[in-house]
Structures are given as structure tokens and as C-alpha cells.
Design a protein around this nucleic acid. Structure first.
Lengths: 271, 271
DNA sequence: GAACAATGTTTCATTAATTGGAACATCAAT
DNA sequence: ATTGATGTTCCAATTAATGAAACATTGTTC
């Protein structure tokens, strides 16, 4: 869950803030104290300190602690740093229109896959994944495709550190089986999944590359099994791949030797 | 800018993270070091520590530091705690449709006004304010209306701590003038502004109240002066007020004596 | 391509800040 | 009024953060 960093106070801070999840977004002091195995006095000092800056917020109504507006502000700013979103959004909208299913944009960070953006379909029965949600990398199409293009070292680290917990009926829990699957994904250039993360859900996903050809994100289509047929899957894979390529292109991928030849050439000719 | 809290490391952390703004979203170690007057070694330890958790992110391309994905994740979660957004959104959309101008939802926190949500109009010339942006409370319709309903103590504190910096031609920079204006806003029940924050921009705003009758947010309409006429302003004020009332109603306001029976003893901070 | 300059990283003795047990305060329920 | 639970403050012990300086890396100039 948490590897130690160079500043212990930061470690604690992260441990505290990470307790706030969609499942439990509000905590009382005592609850947190027992959950984190931290003395109430220490925790209390942290909470009050964090409240000073609006990082946490004590609800006047139920007297519980929640994530505060400062995090909201920082988070919004962090989102702007990801200009990938701005670039990908129109393409994602097109993909939703073409497939009639929810489209998600994901990236890998720190042994987790985070949902950067989503565009939902209008179908009343639809796949939904909240923006900002983090998931383990071994289950689901978007997760697997991102994992597939990590360095082998990193893949082994994930399996070692996080294990392969079963999230749903078809989650791959055997390391060897997963490695084989990741190899297959690299070969095919896309990943698909069926009930690996949620019952009644399927997904396909393809990698997005930056100007260096590095996989920096994934775009995925996901929906309920009720609308699933084999032909559709192949169609969706093709559309998804096109979308990924369009985004990659916008990120400067495939311009060829544009950045390969530059290093020698000095632009400072006027000097 | 920063009042001391009970944990110094948290103070530093906030000071560091607050350097990342829309104006300067990326910093190098040396830049930050000189800006914050912190030794490079100390700062370096912080940055590396924060990177461990994805709170900051070192861009591989330009080697600069930016806000990281974990803040994005926490921010998204913090946004969910503000269920005001979910409630207000449909009303905001209606208001955009009725006025043809951008509508913003704002709240007061820690001597600042933060933009919680926005719905933009389709006009090519339009008012835009990014979600998550923080502004001083003394200029602009939304800001002023939120300020107007703060306790007098808090209003004085803002003027004392932050001053009244001039942001645009019509910014109110005189304390007495501002207090008079805030009184007028309370009497009228809405605020309006013309070029107080941005050249060529106007705005009107009305307060949103929760089930206790407390002002918890503001809804505002804003646009370019090119589309402004006096009749329109009055029309927009009426529409804006209706919208605020609809949202307040949805928050449980005006259900009658539900919470009115509580004695009017305000829990003044008896410190 | 050697020398230089600028930026980034590590080390470690000194110093200051965090810690947490325990005492105290507040609140709700009976 | 009494009890129990939750929240808040205190302070001596000890740990953890500090930052000057040495070191390493990267990029630029001649």
C-alpha cells in the first residue's frame, strides 16, 4: 500500500488521505485512529493541521472529516497538466458515437491504473467508471493493455508487491497466465476482457503513444454483456485502435525522424 | 498566504504545492528553491518524497515538476463530497439555456472563493472560469455575494489579511466602499459587477442556502460587455435568483421550522 | 572534445519538530 | 447526576527534519 519515502510526515499524510475512498469518504477521529493504528493525539494534530489549509474539511453537520476544497483545487490544476485529456476528448466523443458504449481514458502510475477521463453513452444500461478512480493493473482491458507495455521489471514488481487479487469471475490470478496474456496483448496490439473486474461487463482497449513511441495512456470501450456479440467486439477493437492512433498522432507520434534528427542541429543559429 | 498550522512539515508541503498555479504549472528544483527561499537539499527531499506517491510528477521531457496524478485522484474524490454540484448541475444548464451566458457555481473557503463548477454557453465570445480556480473575495459578483453573507468578523479579517488588491478597472479597493456595497447586496439579495475582475466582463450572482438557511454557495451568470444591456441584467438577476432558489430548495431550504427551533445562539469561536 | 557552468543529488552532524501516553474536556444518553 | 464515548491539550523523550558543503550529472561553450 505504501512504500516509505524520504519524509516520514509525508508518508503519514498519504496514509491518512488514502483512507478517504468512494466507499468511505467520511471518517471520525476515533474511526481513523483505530483504522490506522495511530494514537488519537497524533492523528488529531494532523487532522487539524490539514483542516487549516482546507486539505481536509470537518463537516459541521455530522462532525466527520472529508477531503477538502484545497485538494479539489490542486486536483483541477493537476488535471490541466494532463493536456492529454484536452487532446483526447473529441476523439473519445467520436468513439462513443461510433460504438454506442462508454469510452474511458486511462494511464498507469505507481503500480495502479487511474481513470483520467470518460465519455458516457446514453444507453440506460451502461458501463460507468468515475474519473480519478484507481484500479489494480492486472484486470480489465484498459488495465491489462497498460500493464502489457510496462518494462518486464515493473510487471514483476507489480505481481510481487500487489499480487493478483480476484476482482471478478474471470480475473486472471495466475502470474504465468497473466504474463502469457500480456505477451498476446503486445502481439495483437489490443486487450479485451470479459467480467474480469465487474459482473456483466466487457471491455476492449488499445495503447496511446507519445512522440517517442512510448505508451503513455490507453483508450478503452466498455459496456454491458447484454449488448455483446463477437462481430461487435472486432468492430470495436478496430474503432478503438483508430481512435488511439488519432490521439497518438496528435501527440506527435509517427512524425518519423522529427525528434530523431534534431539533437545535432542547433536552433541557436543567430548566436 | 499561509498561516502556521500545528505541523510544520504540512506547512511546507502546502507552501510547495501552492507554487503550482495556472500561471506557472511547472517548476525546476532551482527555480522553486529560489522562489521559496528553501535550501535545495531540503526541497529536493520533499520533491522526491512527493513524487514517490505521485503527488508531484517529474516530467520526463522537460525535467520539470508538475502536480501529479494522486492529487488528481484525491481532487476527484473531494469533488464527490461536494454533492452540491450534482444537485446544481441541471439547474445551471437551464440557466445557461435561458440566459445564453456562462453560469458558474462558487463557494467560499479560507478567505478565498473557489469555482466549484461551470456550464459554458456556446457563444464564441464568452466568459470562461476554470473549475478549481480560486479568487480573492472582494471582486466580481459571485465573490462579493459570498463575502456579503459572511460574519462581519470574517469580512474584517479578509480585508485585514488580504487587503483589496485592484484586479481590474472597477475593482472596489476602498474598505468602506466595499462594506457599503456588501450591505447593499444583502438588502437586494444579489450582486452585480462590471469589469471588477476582467476587462470586458460583467456578472450577476445570487446566494444558495442550505437547509439551515446558511449561505453555502453562489450561482452566477457572467458574460462579455458586448452583449450587455440594462434590461438584460435585470432579467438575468431574476433568472439567477430563481435558479438559486431551486437549488436551495433541493438542499432542503425552506422546509419550514425543521431546524429553526434551534436557539439562535451562534457558536461564536470563543477563543 | 576538453573545460566550464549550471543544475541536480547525497552526506551527516546539528537542531528542531514530531511523538504519544496520560490527563482533561465535551457531549449524549439514561 | 452518572456513565461512557469521543474529542482535545500537555509536555518530556526521542526521533526525524534540516541545510551547508561535497559530490555527481547534465548541458553549453570555445
Amino acid at each position: 500500500m505504501n512504500s516509505p519515502s524520504s519524509i516520514k510526515t509525508v508518508d503519514r499524510l498519504v496514509r491518512i488521505l488514502d483512507c478517504f475512498t468512494p466507499a468511505q469518504p467520511a471518517w471520525s477521529l476515533t474511526e481513523l485512529s483505530t483504522h490506522l493504528q495511530l494514537p488519537k493525539s497524533t492523528l488529531h494534530r494532523f487532522l487539524v493541521s490539514l483542516e487549516t489549509y482546507g486539505i481536509l474539511h470537518r463537516d459541521l453537520h455530522d462532525k466527520r472529516w472529508r477531503l477538502g476544497p484545497r485538494l479539489f483545487a490542486w486536483g483541477s490544476l493537476a488535471a490541466e497538466s494532463i493536456d492529454l485529456r484536452r487532446i483526447a476528448r473529441p476523439v473519445m466523443r467520436d468513439l462513443v458515437a461510433a460504438t454506442g458504449e462508454t469510452v474511458i481514458l486511462t494511464a498507469y502510475y505507481g503500480q495502479e491504473v487511474i481513470c483520467i477521463d470518460k465519455v458516457e453513452t446514453n444507453h440506460s444500461v451502461r458501463m460507468t467508471l468515475e474519473v480519478g478512480t484507481r484500479r489494480p493493473p492486472h484486470a480489465g482491458a484498459s488495465c491489462k493493455v497498460l500493464m502489457a507495455y510496462l518494462p518486464g521489471e515493473e510487471i514483476r514488481a507489480i505481481i510481487r508487491d500487489k499480487g493478483l487479487p480476484r476482482l471478478c469471475t474471470n480475473t486472471i490470478t495466475d502470474p504465468d497466465e497473466l504474463l502469457t496474456e500480456l505477451g498476446a496483448i503486445r502481439e495483437r496490439g489490443y486487450a479485451h476482457s470479459l467480467e474480469e473486474t465487474d459482473l456483466g461487463a466487457w471491455g476492449v482497449a488499445t495503447p496511446i503513444r507519445d512522440w517517442r513511441g512510448e505508451v503513455v495512456a490507453a483508450i478503452g470501450v466498455a459496456g454491458p454483456t447484454s449488448r455483446l456479440t463477437d462481430q461487435l467486439v472486432q468492430q470495436y477493437v478496430a474503432l478503438c485502435r483508430q481512435a488511439a492512433q488519432r490521439i497518438s498522432m496528435l501527440l506527435g507520434a509517427g512524425i518519423g525522424s522529427r525528434n530523431e534528427e534534431q539533437p545535432q542541429t542547433k536552433r541557436e543559429a543567430s548566436k
